[in-house]
Structures are given as C-alpha cells and as structure tokens.
Design a protein around this nucleic acid. Structure first.
Lengths: 191, 191
DNA sequence: ATCACTTCTTAATCTAGGTTAAGTACTAAA
DNA sequence: TTTAGTACTTAACCTAGATTAAGAAGTGAT
C-alpha cells in the first residue's frame, strides 16, 4: 500500500477505484539534497507529500536571515499554503535537506478531486485543522517558553530528525541564532 | 440577511432551504463584558461567530501570565480548535471583552451539517486554511520582527480594535509585557 | 592534495525587552 | 464617598539572547 493512501486512510476510507483515481492524479518525483522545490516569489502549484527524505520550508527577511517554518519527513505534507490557496507569489522557499522521493498533487487536480471524491474535502479539512492546532501551539510556545524549552518541544515534535538536519536550521526553527544555539547545546551537555 | 449567512456566502453559495437548515442548527446568545465562554480545562463544545461585540482567546502559563491567541469582533469566528476537534479538555479561555451577541454552532450540529450540506465542509476547510495562513504569518513575524513592527501588524490586522481593548491585552498579543508596551507607545508618540 | 565553502564553536560585548517597584488615575461596588 | 480593584506609567536595574569576530573542523569540487 502506498504511503500517501495510508496517510489519507488514517482519516477517511477510500474504495479501490477512488484510490486509483487519486493516484492517477499524482506524480512522483525524486530530488537531490539542496534542490529547491519552490522559490520565494513563485506561485506554489502543488502540495507535496514526502515518501522519503526530508524537506524544509523557510523564508528570508530583509536582513538576509532565514527563518524555518517547517520540516517534513516521511509521511508529512508540505506546501506554501498562502500561495497555494491565493495562487499569488508566496515568500516561502521549499528545499530538500536529504534526498527525497516526493508525491506531487497539483492544485488543479486537488480541486478536481474535491468534486470527484468529496471525502477528500474532509480529509484536507482535517489535515488543515491539525496543522492549525500545531501552529497555534507553536505560536503560544514562542510567546511563553525559553529557547531551551522550545528546543525540547522541537525534539518531541520531530523526534530523531534533529540528528539529520544542520544545527543552524534547528536554531532557526526555534527562533535563536546559531551561535546562541551552540552555546545552549554546550550548556545542556554539561548537565 | 444575517451576518453569519453573509459570511458563509463569501465562500460558498447556499439555497434558501440550506440557509434555513443552517440557521435552525445555530443558537444566538448574548453575553456581558467579562463573561467567560470557555474555561481552560473544559471541552469546547461549539464554534462561536461574533455578530457584535468583542471576544478574546488566551491561555495562562505556569507563571500566571496570560497570552492572547486571538481577538474576534463582528464577523469573525472563534473557538478552541484543539479542544473542538479532539473533544479533549483544552487550555484556552474565551472571554468577552465588549458586550457581545454570538452565534453558537455546536460541534455535533457542525458535523451533521457537513453531511447534510457538503458545501459547508468546503466552507470550513477554506476558513481553516485562511486561519492557518494568518497564523503562519504571525509565527514568522514573531521570529523576525521587533515589538514595534509586530504592533504595526496588529494594527493592520485588527484596525481600530486597538482603541476598544485594554492595552495590556494588545501587549500580550504581540508578546511583550505591559510595561514595555507602555514605554514603546510613549516612544512612538514622541516621534 | 588543495582550495573554497559551509558548519560549528567560543568568547567578548551589546541590547531589546523583562523584572521589580512605586505612583497615578479610573472604575465600580458598598 | 470611601474603598478596593484594575489599568497604565515611569524608572532603575537585570538578563536572555543578539552581534561581532575569529578560529576549528568538516565537505566537496577540481
């Protein structure tokens, strides 16, 4: 069973025909580490589902500083939601951190599937609800927790991912500089 | 035309019968300023739509410090998404800032309406997508902007609301102490 | 093997915003 | 009309995390 169908069936069940229809509307691509799937300023044309490897989304502010919005590894969805729904140029980059196999679902096909298989409307509603909850929690954490506590949360959320991605990107995700993160890590080891 | 139907029809159109069915599943309540619609630790039983007045959602961390997640005034939806979808006790409070008329849509009725009027599944999917986008932007802003810039963003998002709610709650929303906010405001006035 | 590039570390110095504390002003209840 | 509570301000002092800078260590292309 394909990973993506499995992922969908955690929330809604599909008939064999629906599965086939769904898969026929997707496309599988392989990307090398450091490939850019989406550039800032581009219109996001599809949702990405990670079969293997690791992706990250981030933006770059005026000061040329990167800020990581999300990581996605096996079984996670990724996209620039703003650009995807507005079909206007976004300000997110999506980049490959570790060689990846990715399922692409174009915006067009996604909309088409909503009408062909209304259950998918439910699936994506729930998927989005879950993202929103996670995002709200992270927002509140950023308002109330220390860098150390946010690192803790990161580890709980992404498990062993921390060993597979450059430290400076974890620093960026939790909202501190690489220098401070390094200092903090040294302090944690001393304990 | 009722405000809530208007709100829905910005995204999906409904037949007269559907409108009637929808409204029959909602309930209107009036609340005085400072009423608590939802307490931390409770299970959130419904979504709230504001006809008039102002609501806020916030949590309280270990240190007894409040953090405002959202404000909602006329035409906005409010709820504890986490608790609403999981039906587990949440950690948000929802409180009335200014006497309010609120439309209540119970979780049960909302689910029921999804099957009776599938277009509503679409409506709430899109509503949630928009929240997610706004939340992601706020998250990135918190990582990269100064308190002053975040206050700017608050004003753009909530317009003249800043004159109707206590300053300390704006401070909490943008993530600074009331003391610092006061100092910052004085500095802005001096310019 | 070498050079260019990136990641990570360490350390000194700096600052945005926090903390503490005291005082003023407003509201609302008794 | 006091009293108690809440909102806001100001100011002195404090600290988590930023900035700057320099060196170490790894990685990859030629």
């Amino acid at each position: 069973m394909s990973l993506i169908i499995n992922n969908i069936e955690k929330i809604v069940s599909l008939t064999p025909e629906e599965k086939e229809l769904f898969l026929s509307k997707t496309e599988i691509q392989h990307y090398k580490s450091k490939s850019i799937l989406l550039n800032s300023g581009e219109i996001c044309k599809c949702s990405y589902f990670v079969n293997s490897g690791i992706l990250r989304s981030f933006n770059i502010n005026d000061n040329i500083v990167e800020h990581v919005l999300n990581f996605a590894c096996e079984g996670w969805w990724m996209g620039d939601m703003y650009s995807l729904i507005s079909q206007k140029p976004g300000n997110l980059f999506i980049e490959v951190i570790e060689d990846a196999e990715v399922v692409l679902l174009s915006k067009e096909n996604q909309e088409l599937l909503y009408t062909e298989i209304p259950k998918l409307e439910r699936f994506f509603r729930i998927l989005t609800e879950n993202s929103l909850v996670a995002n709200q929690e992270r927002l509140m954490d950023n308002l109330s927790l220390s860098a150390e506590e946010r690192f803790d949360k990161f580890n709980k959320r992404y498990g062993n991912l921390s060993h597979k991605i450059p430290q400076k990107q974890i620093a960026s995700y939790i909202g501190v500089t690489p220098e401070f993160f390094s200092k903090m890590k040294a302090k944690l080891l001393r304990k």
